Simulated scan of single mutants.
Amino acid sequence: MGCNSMQLVSDMETPAPETGSIDLDIYRTLGLKELRKGVFRTPRVLMLLSSLLERSVQKNEMLLETTQIKDAVTIFHGLRPPTVSIQQYVDRIFKYSACSPSCFVVANIYVDRLLQQTDIHLTSLNVHRLLITSVMIAAKFVDDAFFNNAYYAKVGGVSTAELNRLEMKFLFSLDFRLQVNVNTFGKYCYQLEKEFADGLQIERPIQACRIKESWSSKDDSTTCASTIAR
């Protein structure tokens, strides 16, 4: 098992309370509860998850640079860091996949499990592919209705064939352990809420896929750098 100090996608630095003691309002503040009829807004969980991922990527890349540890190249790695922020990428996935906000919490749990099971370090070269793959898998497991791989591939800026390979690698790396119990879900929600309470400031945006600034029905494509490992 390749768990180490650089696998920080969900730094559980502060012990989370047991589910029974978690204020259920946390689910509402994260945007996981249904809003009142006629009220529409972007779930806050997207911003908090993006901030947590950006912080983890920064820590990992700093450690890799200062320790001169060579990162293991995997199927999730691109040839170069792409050019928009994690926040923009997460927002795009949510906008076009129409998956439930809970999928992003579950996806975060899946990525954390993957990092604990492998030697992968979360960096700007792999974070976006891990995101699109984990959210797609979470949507299939959590939601009653979801889009197919070809649609998610277009949203994520990769080919359908590549996303199929990413999905299979991800699932086998998890040993197909996709079940998330209520206690685990609550602890990860608590950690995301702590992200907001800490008031973390991200000094620089981490780059993701090259996505056009404005989305249009005429040309709504993304372009990611080719994956190194197949």
Score class of each variant (00 low, 15 high):
Asn4Thr: 06
Ser5Gly: 10
Ser5His: 13
Ser5Asn: 12
Gln7Cys: 05
Asp11Phe: 01
Met12Ile: 11
Thr14Ile: 14
Pro17Phe: 15
Glu18Ser: 13
Ser21Trp: 14
Ile22Pro: 00
Arg28Ala: 00
Thr29Cys: 05
Lys33Ile: 01
Leu35Asp: 02
Leu35Gly: 02
Lys37Asn: 09
Gly38Phe: 07
Met47Cys: 08
Leu49Thr: 09
Ser50Pro: 02
Ser51Leu: 12
Glu54Ser: 13
Glu54Pro: 01
Val57His: 01
Asn60Pro: 01
Glu61Met: 15
Leu63Ile: 10
Thr67Arg: 15
Gln68Thr: 13
Ile69Pro: 00
Ile69Tyr: 10
Ile75His: 02
His77Arg: 08
Gly78Ser: 14
Gly78Thr: 09
Leu79Val: 10
Pro82Thr: 02
Thr83Cys: 12
Val84Ala: 05
Val90Glu: 09
Val90Thr: 15
Asp91Phe: 12
Ile93Arg: 07
Ala98Trp: 07
Pro101Asp: 07
Cys103Thr: 08
Val105Cys: 10
Leu115Lys: 04
Gln117Leu: 11
Ile120Met: 13
Leu122Tyr: 10
Ser124Cys: 14
Asn126Phe: 00
Val127Gly: 01
His128Arg: 08
Arg129Lys: 12
Leu130Phe: 06
Thr133Leu: 07
Thr133Pro: 07
Ser134Lys: 00
Ile137Leu: 07
Asp143Ala: 10
Ala150Asn: 14
Tyr152Met: 15
Gly156Tyr: 00
Thr160Asp: 13
Leu163Ala: 05
Asn164Ser: 14
Arg165Ser: 12
Arg165His: 09
Glu167Ser: 04
Leu171Met: 05
Leu171Gly: 02
Phe172Thr: 04
Phe172Trp: 01
Ser173Trp: 00
Leu178Ile: 11
Leu178Thr: 10
Val180Ala: 05
Asn181Phe: 04
Asn181Glu: 09
Val182Gly: 04
Lys187Pro: 02
Lys187Cys: 10
Tyr188Leu: 15
Cys189Arg: 00
Gln191Ser: 08
Leu192Val: 11
Glu195Gln: 12
Asp198Asn: 15
Ile202Thr: 03
Gln207Ser: 12
Ala208Met: 14
Ile211Arg: 01
Ser214Arg: 15
Ser214Leu: 13
Ser214Thr: 15
Ser214Glu: 14
Ser217Pro: 10
Asp219Val: 03
Asp220Lys: 15
Thr222Tyr: 01
Cys224Glu: 01
Cys224Gly: 02
Cys224Ile: 09
Ile228Met: 15
